[in-house]
Amino acid sequence: MPMSADDLRAHLTEAFPDADIAIEDLAGDGDHYRARIVSEAFRGLNRVRQHQLVYAALKGKMGGELHALALETSTPIEAG
């Protein structure tokens, strides 16, 4: 069963409560999303580490309930 955008947002909000989060369903199937996450939690971390934190927040659902997730992560300063 695909993951809903609301479930995806809930996981991300739990892990990054200060974040500005935008989610887009890329294919309309609940299986392919783009997430833009702006959070202080990413400060000082390289892009790979930022994305690892996001995948950890999904608690093993990536590759199962969630097939594809295009990520854009940044700090508030980087986002402007």
Rank of each mutant, 00 (worst) to 15 (best):
21 I>E: 05
35 A>F: 07
71 L>P: 03
52 Q>V: 04
45 L>R: 15
10 A>H: 00
1 M>R: 14
69 L>Q: 00
44 G>M: 10
35 A>T: 09
66 L>I: 09
1 M>C: 13
37 I>D: 11
60 G>L: 04
25 D>N: 13
72 E>P: 00
12 L>F: 06
18 D>E: 13
10 A>G: 01
39 S>E: 05
30 G>K: 09
29 D>H: 14
28 G>N: 12
56 A>G: 07
53 L>V: 10
5 A>H: 01
44 G>L: 06
67 H>M: 10
44 G>I: 11
6 D>S: 10
31 D>G: 15
74 S>R: 12
59 K>S: 00
73 T>M: 13
32 H>Q: 11
3 M>D: 02
44 G>E: 08
59 K>I: 02
38 V>I: 15
75 T>D: 07
7 D>M: 06
76 P>Q: 10
34 R>E: 15
67 H>K: 13
66 L>K: 06
49 R>Y: 12
12 L>G: 04
9 R>Q: 04
38 V>A: 07
18 D>N: 12
9 R>F: 00
14 E>Q: 05
63 G>H: 08
27 A>Y: 07
22 A>Q: 14
20 D>S: 14
26 L>T: 06
23 I>A: 07
23 I>F: 08
68 A>R: 08
50 Q>G: 13
1 M>Y: 11
28 G>Y: 14
27 A>L: 14
34 R>Q: 14
31 D>Q: 15
25 D>W: 12
28 G>L: 14
48 V>H: 11
50 Q>T: 14
18 D>W: 14
38 V>C: 08
